[in-house]
Amino acid sequence: MRDIFMLAAFFLLLIPVFNKPFIGVALWLWAAMFFPSAWVYGPAQLIRYNFVFSIITILGVFAYKKRAKVEANALTILITLFFIWSFITFLTGQGAPALAEYYLLNFLKIVALYYCAAAVLVKKIHVDFFIWSILLSVGFFASVEGLKVIASGGASHISGLPGHVLGDRNDLAMGINLSIPLVAYLREQYQNKILKLGLLVVMLLMAFCVLGTYSRGGLVGLLVLGILFLMESDKKILVILSLLFVVFIGNYLMPPEWFIRMETINSASEDGSFMGRVIAWKIATLIALDNPIFGAGIKGPENLTVWLPYALELNSKLTGIDTPPPDLLRGHAAHNSFFQVLGEQGFPGLILFVLIILVSFNKLNKAMRFFPKNSSNYYLAKMLKLSLIMYLVSAVALSKAYFDLSFSIYALVRFLDRQVKVNNSQTIVKSQLANI
């Protein structure tokens, strides 16, 4: 049944993908986030959806009648430098070759997605469809799982599809938290009351799914998101009612086991999982201090031959925060995107990574100052800012420096930056014409 749906949809989608690169890039992201192969069992599993959509889109970007341009700007240059630096550190690094190659290739695909999205998303409708693709992938999965959380009285432990980029429950919670503001943007674009109500229900189900992941980082992100929505929204009553709904139903639904787990947020220093992360942060810092320029390369810090010498001398080399003895049998991920980049790419990589985020915030602030408060571009900038904050909140506890959704946000920031420039030049021309 699912195979028939999937194959029919795939062949029907090829027509718009061939015609419009902006649809191609959105479906590329959709396939990356939806992971269609995990939903089907028969012949539909044989198709590499992500690969097909990406190849057609890349060809479309270069061979389209009106050839799309990847224009150089601060953000694109920084992302390019960040990728080049990750490639250089991959060459000099000590990551297990097959694993490092796999992750570098994945990062290349993410950067390619950014380039294509930055080149072809030039109109509001392009951006809207791009965000619909996130809603119909991350939003869809979260809504289905959110229903399961409600139906099971909170007993259902939600995690992503095995083998997917959002497979881990913490990664899934991050992806959902990051997508909620984008659904809120879409909700503002339509006047139809049924559609607005439907999108509000999707947002609430997404919040329940985050609760169902039992992710403590996810809950912290959700709380921060609630506060930000309350501060930023013009419709405070709706936000308060939505928050009360999630809090009361969540409080009623979730089992004691969930509350016990969430209460451990307050005693992080006694928590083994948290202290394991602190150990990984300390080791990433020591690696960067010993290799300040190149770090240990992609997946280098997790390689036992790199990890072990630092693990053996951890508390004597880096004093200040006492940690339990580290694992001497295998290296661990940094569980923090900043320490991840620091350990893998040294200080130059970290500077580039931080600059990408800072420049994105700067461009979003610029767009919010430039566009009138009732315009869709203003609201897009506001919601992208919330998404980026959600990324930062989660990035503190997860190794997600190379993440499809964060680079999709950068592509949308690039769109807004272009809109500011286009509108600015149009304003200047109009004022010059008025002076003649």
Binding site: F5, A9, P16, W30, F129
Partner: peptide
């Protein structure tokens, strides 16, 4: 139930892809 929702999601995706293609063509004509 999950398969029905899966079908609805794909149906909506296909519908929106054609809808936005039409919108883009209309904008170009104008």
């Amino acid at each position: 139930m999950e398969s029905i929702l899966f079908g609805i999601d794909l149906g909506l995706l296909v519908f929106l892809a054609y809808w936005f293609m039409k919108l883009d063509n209309n904008e170009k004509d104008n």
